[in-house]
Measured scan of single mutants.
Amino acid sequence: QVALSRTQVCGILREELFQGDAFHQSDTHIFIIMGASGDLAKKKIYPTIWWLFRDGLLPENTFIVGYARSRLTVADIRKQSEPFFKATPEEKLKLEDFFARNSYVAGQYDDAASYQRLNSHMNALHLGSQANRLFYLALPPTVYEAVTKNIHESCMSQIGWNRIIVEKPFGRDLQSSDRLSNHISSLFREDQIYRIDHYLGKEMVQNLMVLRFANRIFGPIWNRDNIACVILTFKEPFGTEGRGGYFDEFGIIRDVMQNHLLQMLCLVAMEKPASTNSDDVRDEKVKVLKCISEVQANNVVLGQYVGNPDGEGEATKGYLDDPTVPRGSTTATFAAVVLYVENERWDGVPFILRCGKALNERKAEVRLQFHDVAGDIFHQQCKRNELVIRVQPNEAVYTKMMTKKPGMFFNPEESELDLTYGNRYKNVKLPDAYERLILDVFCGSQMHFVRSDELREAWRIFTPLLHQIELEKPKPIPYIYGSRGPTEADELMKRVGFQYEGTYKWVNPHKL
């Protein structure tokens, strides 16, 4: 086992960053958080920038500027975001240094004079007029057009580079997404736009490419001749908990499936790229999406959770019991969808996408189930092999396979070949997804960000279904809070070829 401390991990990262040409360590950078008073800024962006600063992973002359409508001070920003920093008493001095680099400007999102004030403020910072500028839009999409237009007109660096990070949702359907994309691309070049999907920053999602293309053993079996089906799962054990009003506007397909799960599907299904260059990788992902037809209604199961009468606390409440959810809402909190990649490698292999709230566990994984062994000599005792990439929690890679049961006879039983990170790298604290992705933006690497043509294809696949749901308002199937979801989803999976045995229990190697 390799035991690495946080300091050692960050030392390795620093070495990698400083050796590259793309990370300008000594240049002045300004990180501007648009929507600095909001939840995302408070819980994710400010803490992430602090962790990067604490670990010495930001360029040395980096300033952080918050911008929002609320009249706040840096002290206010500190008060609301610091509880999420997880700072230790030993880091007190470092924390003071961090907040000394912070400033805040209040202004409207659609007022040109406010942006001119913001620009004057940035120019007044040390070497601010020639600094590289990175704008993070932690804002609702309704203000994107006004904000990007004003940034472009008043706040661009004339000497350094300018980059803009856009948070999902990128529209509600193909038409609104196209409108937003066309607007942003009329102001910024594609190499300046970073559409963030934080799932692409997760260690195991990034590991998929290495697993596939750096190991000879997987190449020959990664196709329709050997793989019976692919299941991509995202499960949350909690409901909307008072935030249903926002969720109800989008629903589970827009929230998770059309982005996170579809991105994971691309990494499983794509061909080997010409290189690890950002556009070479994204070219292959677009090719996969172009091979997927629009979702067919007979390959869809929609569910909505109801309270568990035997549960406790939140578990007793259904989705419609959330006071922020519109009365009688038919918005799905669970969806199972089957897609097919219609190309030579994957023809006929079902890709089953499942996601839901208020389920029995927290889990995100990719599961490849292989065909049955031909010419069975073990009297149907063999179960199908599976390769599982567990994204969260407890990152893991393992192969479910058959071995001989101890004893006199040739009785096979299920076991696993474990390729888990935790076994080799004991207690290594890896940077989280937002840390990686923000560092990628500083480096100018777009590999783990969504390109406009990729986004367009993703919406093309799901828009007809979303429009049909909005028009017909089908009643989702009720499922109990804390269950596996509607049984109809299991029946759909069985119908397209997935075999669920229920006889195997994964042993978490992190707890051995």
Rank of each mutant, 00 (worst) to 15 (best):
residue 275 S to I: 05
residue 254 R to T: 06
residue 343 N to F: 06
residue 341 V to D: 00
residue 430 L to I: 08
residue 302 L to P: 03
residue 439 L to M: 12
residue 300 V to T: 15
residue 255 D to F: 03
residue 267 L to D: 00
residue 358 A to I: 06
residue 452 S to K: 08
residue 406 P to K: 08
residue 265 L to T: 08
residue 488 E to P: 11
residue 389 I to L: 11
residue 379 H to W: 10
residue 327 R to T: 12
residue 410 F to R: 10
residue 342 E to Q: 15
residue 322 D to K: 00
residue 330 T to A: 11
residue 447 M to T: 08
residue 307 G to D: 10
residue 329 S to C: 07
residue 446 Q to E: 00
residue 333 T to P: 04
residue 284 E to F: 08
residue 381 Q to Y: 08
residue 416 E to H: 07
residue 338 V to P: 10
residue 402 M to W: 08
residue 444 G to V: 00
residue 320 L to F: 10
residue 357 K to I: 05
residue 432 D to P: 11
residue 290 K to E: 14
residue 337 V to I: 14
residue 427 N to E: 14
residue 504 Y to D: 04
residue 294 E to M: 10
residue 382 C to A: 15
residue 315 A to W: 11
residue 294 E to N: 13
residue 315 A to I: 11
residue 464 P to I: 07
residue 342 E to F: 10
residue 272 K to I: 08
residue 435 E to D: 08
residue 340 Y to D: 05
residue 268 V to C: 12
residue 495 R to H: 14
residue 360 N to W: 00
residue 401 M to A: 13
residue 419 L to C: 14
residue 446 Q to W: 02
residue 290 K to C: 07
residue 405 K to G: 07
residue 387 L to H: 05
residue 310 D to H: 13
residue 396 A to T: 11
residue 271 E to K: 07
residue 349 V to G: 04
residue 327 R to Q: 14
residue 302 L to V: 10
residue 476 P to S: 07
residue 304 Q to E: 00
residue 472 E to L: 14
residue 260 H to N: 04
residue 323 P to L: 15
residue 373 V to R: 05
residue 472 E to S: 13
residue 369 Q to K: 05
residue 414 E to F: 12
residue 366 V to E: 01
residue 431 P to M: 06
residue 401 M to K: 01
residue 353 L to W: 00
residue 419 L to H: 04
residue 314 E to V: 11
residue 322 D to M: 06
residue 283 D to F: 01
residue 407 G to R: 04
residue 452 S to W: 07
residue 327 R to I: 15
residue 483 S to Y: 05
residue 363 K to H: 03
residue 388 V to K: 03
residue 474 P to Q: 12
residue 318 G to W: 01
residue 309 P to L: 13
residue 258 Q to T: 08
residue 327 R to Y: 09
residue 468 Q to F: 13
residue 299 N to Q: 14
residue 324 T to G: 15
residue 466 L to Q: 05
residue 488 E to D: 14
residue 453 D to V: 01
residue 503 T to C: 14
residue 301 V to L: 08
residue 331 T to Q: 12
residue 358 A to E: 00
residue 281 V to M: 11
residue 371 H to E: 08
residue 380 Q to M: 11
residue 361 E to V: 06
residue 485 G to H: 05
residue 459 W to Q: 01
residue 449 F to A: 08
residue 323 P to G: 12
residue 427 N to W: 08
residue 482 G to L: 04
residue 405 K to L: 12
residue 491 E to V: 15
residue 412 P to H: 10
residue 479 Y to Q: 02
residue 368 L to T: 03
residue 299 N to R: 11
residue 428 V to E: 15
residue 441 V to I: 08
residue 288 V to P: 03
residue 405 K to P: 08
residue 498 F to E: 03
residue 470 E to T: 15
residue 460 R to N: 12
residue 272 K to V: 07
residue 499 Q to L: 12
residue 312 E to I: 10
residue 486 P to E: 01
residue 293 S to I: 06
residue 279 D to P: 08
residue 255 D to Q: 02
residue 503 T to I: 10
residue 332 A to F: 02
residue 505 K to M: 10
residue 293 S to K: 15
residue 376 D to F: 07
residue 424 R to V: 05
residue 269 A to L: 06
residue 393 P to R: 06
residue 304 Q to L: 00
residue 369 Q to T: 06
residue 262 L to Y: 02
residue 329 S to I: 00
residue 347 D to V: 07
residue 450 V to M: 05
residue 331 T to C: 10
residue 265 L to D: 02
residue 302 L to H: 07
residue 331 T to P: 04
residue 303 G to Y: 04
residue 313 G to A: 14
residue 405 K to C: 13
residue 314 E to P: 11
residue 270 M to E: 04
residue 465 L to V: 12
residue 370 F to E: 01
residue 288 V to C: 11
residue 445 S to L: 15
residue 372 D to W: 06
residue 334 F to Y: 12
residue 260 H to G: 01
residue 276 T to S: 11
residue 290 K to Y: 07
residue 418 D to S: 08
residue 448 H to M: 07
residue 443 C to G: 13
residue 346 W to R: 02
residue 424 R to H: 03
residue 278 S to A: 10
residue 306 V to W: 09
residue 347 D to F: 09
residue 460 R to P: 00
residue 398 Y to H: 02
residue 505 K to Q: 15
residue 346 W to E: 03
residue 437 L to G: 00
residue 352 I to H: 03
residue 350 P to S: 00
residue 358 A to K: 00
residue 497 G to S: 12
residue 283 D to R: 01
residue 460 R to G: 08
residue 331 T to F: 03
residue 500 Y to K: 06
residue 460 R to A: 07
residue 329 S to M: 00
residue 472 E to Y: 14
residue 326 P to E: 08
residue 465 L to Q: 07
residue 351 F to G: 04
residue 481 Y to H: 11
residue 342 E to N: 14
residue 456 R to G: 13
residue 416 E to M: 02
residue 349 V to Y: 02
residue 358 A to S: 10
residue 420 T to S: 15
residue 482 G to Y: 07
residue 337 V to E: 05
residue 451 R to L: 02
residue 505 K to G: 14
residue 334 F to V: 02
residue 382 C to T: 11
residue 351 F to C: 04
residue 469 I to S: 11
residue 344 E to I: 07
residue 283 D to S: 09
residue 380 Q to L: 07
residue 272 K to S: 07
residue 392 Q to Y: 07
residue 303 G to S: 00
residue 437 L to I: 07
residue 410 F to C: 11
residue 426 K to D: 11
residue 318 G to L: 00
residue 385 N to P: 04
residue 386 E to W: 04
residue 471 L to S: 15
residue 294 E to T: 12
residue 312 E to H: 13
residue 284 E to T: 07
residue 378 F to W: 12
residue 431 P to C: 09
residue 305 Y to V: 07
residue 374 A to Y: 13
residue 302 L to Y: 08
residue 412 P to C: 11
residue 495 R to D: 15
residue 489 A to T: 09
residue 492 L to S: 00
residue 399 T to R: 02
residue 410 F to N: 08
residue 494 K to P: 04
residue 475 K to V: 14
residue 379 H to Y: 14
residue 439 L to A: 12
residue 393 P to A: 08
residue 302 L to G: 03
residue 501 E to T: 11
residue 388 V to Y: 02
residue 443 C to Q: 08
residue 360 N to L: 04
residue 473 K to E: 12
residue 505 K to C: 15
residue 500 Y to H: 15
residue 282 R to A: 02
residue 373 V to N: 09
residue 468 Q to L: 13
residue 412 P to K: 10
residue 294 E to I: 11
residue 478 P to E: 12
residue 412 P to Y: 09
residue 375 G to H: 12
residue 504 Y to G: 06
residue 437 L to C: 10
residue 491 E to H: 14
residue 334 F to P: 05
residue 388 V to G: 02
residue 448 H to Y: 08
residue 328 G to Q: 15
residue 400 K to V: 06
residue 324 T to I: 07
residue 438 I to N: 00
residue 404 K to C: 01
residue 415 S to D: 04
residue 388 V to T: 09
residue 360 N to R: 05
residue 353 L to S: 02
residue 388 V to D: 01
residue 256 V to Q: 02
residue 443 C to R: 10
residue 344 E to P: 11
residue 332 A to Q: 09
residue 424 R to C: 05
residue 374 A to M: 09
residue 335 A to L: 01
residue 401 M to L: 09
residue 455 L to D: 05
